[in-house]
Nucleic acid binder design. Structure first.
Lengths: 117, 117
DNA sequence: CCAACGTATTCCGATATGGGTATATGATGG
DNA sequence: CCATCATATACCCATATCGGAATACGTTGG
């Protein structure tokens, strides 16, 4: 009865889609222009079904578009979905920019070391 | 012989760590300041072990620091690891702008097609 | 020391995941 | 229509994942 959901479906979630290194690699490759599945699988050193499956995920979350070109199917980047991730992480910019960040971490470490002695 | 790795371990990978909605929620909550585990679990409507386990993942990828405070353990944001994600997605900025242009062009085409009906 | 409180870990069950391999589906040229 | 190339899907396996419940561990006050 679907009581225990193991994790959010990788599809329909951009954060999950880009959690996979090979999928990130695909997106990077596609910045240089559209590619066929075979080209991608060769450039990545991955089996064709492997590439196809990752492309399916990327397609379902909307990060790539595909178009038929003869026997081939060309995949093209659609980076709009990455904007949400960029903006979400951007919401933390002031926290990683704080100049006392490193010093603060250092102080915390000292405190902790003391307490654990 | 560990031949089939199901997916990259969620630990040691920031992209994977933030693929989990609850973990993202924790990070957001911690922007307002450090919190104990119980406080977090209550604010999130999650069990205490649930919170603890997500915090462990976040700690292992370095997105939070913890410090003992009496019986409690206070968790604090360490957003530096998010910078990598921000920058990676930032590498696509010109593409999502371009995509908007393309969408815009498409919309223009639609308008035009209508007028020509 | 011990009772209590706060937190972490362990175990379990259901499910998602990724990589193979084999095979199905699709499109093309002739 | 057929042979062929390109891609997608199905199936299997090993493992990761998440949530819940029970329990272990740690700290503190009395």
């Amino acid at each position: 009865m679907m009581a225990n959901m193991a994790r959010a479906a990788t599809t329909s979630d951009v954060f999950n889609a880009i959690a996979e290194p090979q999928r990130r690699e695909i997106l990077v490759l596609l910045r240089a222009g559209e590619r066929s599945v075979t080209e991608l699988s060769r450039e990545m050193g991955v089996s064709q079904p492997g590439a196809s499956k990752h492309l399916r995920v990327l397609r379902e979350v909307g990060l790539v578009r595909d178009r038929k070109a003869g026997k081939q199917r060309l995949y093209e980047l659609d980076a709009r979905g990455l904007r949400a991730v960029h903006e979400w992480t951007g919401g933390f910019e002031r926290f990683w920019n704080e100049s006392f960040d490193r010093l603060d971490a250092y102080v915390q470490d000292l405190k902790q070391a003391r307490q654990e002695e």
